[in-house]
Design a protein around this nucleic acid. Structure first.
Lengths: 339, 339
DNA sequence: TTGTAGGCGTTATCAT
DNA sequence: ATGATAACGCCTACAA
């Protein structure tokens, strides 16, 4: 005696509630949304029916009807990177305060699929926050129409009028260099990040500017963006006669710190090490890491505000640019004669 | 002369493509889904029309029609915790290999809102991976019907038949204790995590078992789950006469390590420190941290497989239980006379 | 092989 | 204040 007509297993629909309450679907909808005025006794009947059927409106159907999902997407190149984890966290938090959820997509540094991932993620949501430091400008420009409304994090929007939230890497590097020069350092190594990373290029050109101005001797090492990269390059550091190292980011600096430690090189007595980002653990390395602090949680928050403005049809605000704050800790010290 | 009828700004619909191609919507649908056999010349016309209109099927409408979103939700209590970040990353990766996206919701340790967040997140998706270590069993049981299909991470499902992926904390603790006892330690401090955390309770009861058996003297310190918690408790550690410390997790162990360092206590000469989890940085602390390694990336992957099985109507597989692997590094050493 | 028509579960407009 | 009814955009029997 299986009842095919009243299937209790499938989620209740607005129609079943309406039927049980003896009203129209429209009335149920009004009650569920607390909208307009519904006669109290009817509203009560509806609520009772909804309760007994354990009715929950379908988010999907509602989204289709109203034309928005209350969801935004975040696309990052590497979820293992603390920077993006922080952006993720703060973005999720900020969006949640306005009742929005976050869909996360990790392109896993796969530049080829990145565009597909971004487009697909965007299409599930109302908007997008895009972290794509390696994507060529041309490709980004071509994609822009499909991604809108969206905001960029950590990269400039060349011509297109896309709001972006980014970090003044040049200023951060300048502060670090000034700090090191003040400590008497002249020969400085730079552990370069991914060559295609725009933020790496910014760091590098700033450093080269100092070198060109004769203010320091710059030694460049191809490195990467991870702990392992920094760790691996430590050996080459002792071949240099540099007294200080600036790493692409804190992770790389960590790796270098660890590698140098294993090689018996003392920091900062023999060599100073500086990072970039100020990720949470930066203050807890031994020695604690001198770095340029960029507040990733503010980045996520700001990105949300930008996107929220766009979603509401407001004009995109001017780009936000965070100036990193120099944080001097124990990993940098006075330059010493190397040998 | 604004044309209201053919609005180019709004995304193209299947109807407009059908119209332009001179076919029915059904045919367009078939072409877009690569399904069944459509006459080549018609298919070509459809593709051309879709291209000129820049048509992309609405994910939303499609989801409503087919009854699934190809999206799963992850609810975690704290996105700042490396453990959950790893689960997030691996889950995202695993789900992506099967064409599914991940919606992330951070309950931010807010137990009160956690149930609402979980239910709401679940309703946007096809399934849910729930990390809710503090949620009372009763509440979880009450919520289960609304959350299904879902899998639990890092907590048991008492009676309800919900697959769970968890860690054999007792075994991990046993390994750590055996290791310490082997080094001659007798008096051991435990830096307890959040009291309501079920995994903390497991750790604790295992430790108390050793104590009850007379195999070690146990000193319990209320602590927490973060670096700061561990850092703050370091001072109390030197008041004990313990020769070893087991921390609730690696973060706490880090904090303790850092605090002890500042207090001039040398590890492991004066006191041994062990963590739990083996988060990425554990191998890079000074000294590197001895810990019970639980592979968070495997957790996410396994959780996905469980959920995927559920989504396909398969019977839930038996619970997965990862036995942590003891990783001995530099932070533990032979017990020394304290004074 | 192609088209017609109904349904997915809401919301919103417009009568009443 | 309430109820038909038509979107929202797509899929899918079923029919032709």
């Amino acid at each position: 005696m299986t009842a095919e007509t009243d299937d209790d297993t499938r989620p209740a629909t607005i129609s079943r509630v309406a039927e049980l309450a003896g009203v129209s679907r429209a009335t149920v909808s009004r009650v569920m949304n607390g909208s307009s005025t519904v006669a109290p006794h009817l509203a009560e009947r509806v609520r009772a029916a909804a309760a007994t059927l354990n009715y929950q409106p379908s988010v999907l159907a509602r989204s289709l009807a109203v034309g928005r999902t209350s969801t935004i997407a975040l696309v990052v190149p590497d979820l293992a990177n603390p920077m993006f984890q922080d952006v993720l966290r703060s973005l999720s938090h900020a969006a949640a305060t306005q009742g929005h959820r976050l869909l996360v997509a990790d392109s896993e540094e796969n530049v080829a699929e990145e565009r597909l991932i971004a487009v697909e993620a965007r299409r599930r949501c109302d908007g997008l926050v895009l972290c794509a430091p390696r994507m060529p400008d041309s490709e980004l420009a071509a994609l822009a129409p499909q991604l809108a409304p969206f905001v960029l994090v950590n990269r400039e929007a060349p011509d297109l009028s896309v709001p972006s939230v980014n970090v003044d890497y040049a200023a951060g590097i300048r502060d670090l260099v000034s700090h090191l020069i003040g400590l008497g350092h002249r020969k400085v190594a730079y552990l370069a990040g991914p060559p295609t990373s725009s933020s790496n290029q910014l760091r590098l050109s700033t450093l080269r500017g100092f070198a060109a101005a004769g203010r320091l001797d710059l030694v460049e090492h191809e490195c990467g963006a991870t702990f392992s990269d920094g760790h691996a390059v430590a050996g080459r550091l002792i071949d240099d006669v540099c007294t200080a190292v600036i790493a692409y980011n804190d992770l790389v600096a960590f790796g270098a710190l660890s590698g140098l430690h294993e090689l018996g090189v003392s920091v900062p007595q023999q060599i100073s090490v500086a990072g970039f980002d100020d990720i949470p653990f930066a203050r807890y390395t031994t020695p604690p890491l001198t770095t340029a602090s960029v507040p990733p949680s503010e980045i996520g928050e700001r990105a949300w505000h930008r996107l929220w403005a766009l979603l509401n049809g407001q004009q995109p605000e001017p780009d936000a640019r965070f100036r990193p704050r120099l944080v001097v800790r124990g990993s940098t010290g006075p330059a010493a004669a190397w040998s």
